[in-house]
Design a protein around this nucleic acid. Structure first.
Lengths: 246, 246
DNA sequence: GTTTAATGTGTAAATTAAACACATTATAGC
DNA sequence: GCTATAATGTGTTTAATTTACACATTAAAC
C-alpha cells in the first residue's frame, strides 16, 4: 500500500503512519547490487569475476556484489561496491535489470539489481585485494554461482544492443586510435567479423571522427592513421529514431 | 557481502551464517512494484492511474504499486499487485527498471521496480474498486506523485522503443484488423504520422500478415480488408540483428 | 445519383547496405 | 639494400531499403 493507492473503498483511509509501519516493520527485503564489468583487452572481451566463498558454490565464479545500505541511493551503492571490490572509481555504471526470485540466494531473500559497465582493461588498474579477482574471457564464462550466469547473459545481450545504438566504444580506446582498433572493438563485443572497407565507410559517414593527421607508432606493420572521437559533432547530428523493424 | 565476494584477504573467511545474519537483520529495505499500464483506446494511448491518498500528494495521480512480500517472487508481486488494483490478470508485464534514491518515498526507504504493460482498453474490463482509478490520455500526464512522473517517462520511452523492435502491437488489436487499425496503433504509441502507402508496404514486406479475405463491417466509410497476425510466420523469419547506428 | 472520404495500388528517386579488388606502405627477413 | 609480407587506404558496382508522391476504386452518406 506504500504508494498510496487504495484497494477498495473500505480501505480508503490509510494514513502515512500506517504506511510507515508497513515500510518499517514488515515486508522488508535484503537488496543487493551485482556489477558486470566488461573489459576490452587486446581485441578480446572479458568480464571481471571473483571466486565465490560460499561452500554451496565452492570453486565457482561470481559477479561483484554486495548489499545496499538502507540510507544509500541505489546507484551510489553500485559505485561503492565496485570501488570496494576493485578500486575502480571513474567508471560509468548502467542499471540493467533486477532479479528477484525468492530462492536465488541461499542465505535468504535477496533481490539484486544488476549494473553493467564497459572499460578498457589496460586503462584501469585493479586493486586486487586477493588473488581471486580475475578477468575472464567471456567465451569461457559458464556455470557462475547463484543466478549470476543468467545475470551475465542478460547484461552481455544488453551491452551488445547498446553498443550498436550509442558510442560507448570510444571510452575503451585511447584518445587517439586507428580504425583497426575501432573495428577490433566492435568485432570483439558483437562477436562477428565485418568487412573492413564497409566498416570504415560506415564510421566516416557518421561524421564524428576527426583525422588527427598522425600515424600509429611502433606497430609491427604499416602504421594506420589516427583519429579521435568528437563528442560535439556526435551530439549535433540529428538522429532519425523511428524505424519499425522486427 | 551477500554474494560471497571478498573485500580483502583478511575478511576472506565469511561463513554462510554470517552472511545470513546480515541478510536477516540489518540492511533490509522495503521493496515495491509500480505498474505502468498503457492502454490503447480508439487511436489514443492512455495510462492507468490512481489518485494518491497521501496528504503530501493530495490530488495527485500515481501509478499502481504496492510492497513486495518477503516470500514472493518479484514478477509474481507485480502480477498480484496489478490484479488486486485492477482485476486484470491475463496481461503480460515486463520489467523496465528500478528506482532507488533514498528519499523517493515520504514514508521511508522504498526501492521500487517498475513494470510496464500495454493492453487494449476495450478488451479488458477493469474492476474499479473505487472511483479513483482512471485511464488518462498520456498527453495529459504531468506532475504525478512520488517520482512516478520519472518512472512513467522512462516506461513510455521504453515502450516506444520496444514496439519498434517487437510485434507487441498485435495484442492490442482484434484478431482481425485492418491496416488502418494497425497504423493508428503505431501512430498513437510513437506519436508520429506515417505515410499510409509506405506503412502498408513495410508491413506486407515483413510477411507475417495473413489476408483473411474479409472486409470490415459497420464502418462509416469504405471497408478495408481484414488481416491477422501469424506468429509462426513471424518467428520463422531470420532477423539480421547487426546494425550499428547512432 | 452525386458527393465524400476512405481504401488500394505503383513508380521513381534517394539513401543505405553489401560485395568485392587493387594499389600503397612500412616492417621483417634475408 | 632487396624482397617478401602483411597490413593500410581507397572506389565501384549492385542490391536492398526508404522516401516521396498521385490516381483510380469503393462504399457510405446525403
Amino acid at each position: 500500500m506504500i504508494t498510496g493507492e487504495k484497494t477498495s473503498p473500505a480501505k480508503n483511509i490509510k494514513t502515512l503512519q500506517v504506511i510507515q509501519s508497513e515500510v518499517e516493520n514488515t515486508n522488508r527485503i535484503a537488496l543487493s547490487v551485482d556489477c558486470v564489468i566488461f573489459g576490452f583487452d587486446e581485441a578480446k572481451l572479458e568480464v571481471l569475476l571473483i571466486r565465490s566463498d560460499l561452500k554451496k558454490f565452492a570453486g565457482k565464479w561470481s559477479l561483484l556484489g554486495d548489499l545496499v545500505f538502507p540510507e544509500e541511493d541505489l546507484d551510489a551503492a553500485a559505485y561503492r561496491i565496485l570501488k570496494q571490490r576493485t578500486g575502480l572509481s571513474d567508471v560509468y555504471l548502467e542499471q540493467v535489470s533486477t532479479f528477484g526470485t525468492v530462492n536465488r540466494h541461499p542465505a535468504g531473500r535477496v533481490v539484486t539489481v544488476a549494473y553493467c559497465s564497459l572499460i578498457n582493461v589496460q586503462h584501469h588498474k585493479l586493486n586486487i585485494l586477493d588473488n581471486e579477482l580475475h578477468w575472464h574471457d567471456i567465451k569461457n564464462v559458464t556455470d557462475l554461482a547463484f543466478d549470476h550466469q543468467q545475470i551475465f547473459d542478460s547484461c552481455l545481450k544488453q551491452l551488445q544492443k547498446r553498443v550498436q545504438e550509442h558510442p560507448l566504444g570510444f571510452n575503451l580506446l585511447p584518445k587517439k586510435f586507428s580504425l583497426r582498433d575501432l573495428q577490433n572493438l566492435y568485432e570483439a563485443i558483437l562477436d562477428i567479423k565485418m568487412d573492413r572497407r564497409n566498416f570504415r565507410k560506415k564510421f566516416f559517414s557518421m561524421d564524428f571522427l576527426v583525422d588527427l593527421e598522425e600515424m600509429e607508432q611502433d606497430v609491427p606493420h604499416r602504421p594506420g592513421k589516427l583519429y579521435k572521437f568528437n563528442y560535439e559533432k556526435y551530439e549535433k547530428r540529428k538522429k532519425k529514431w523511428v524505424g519499425i523493424d522486427f
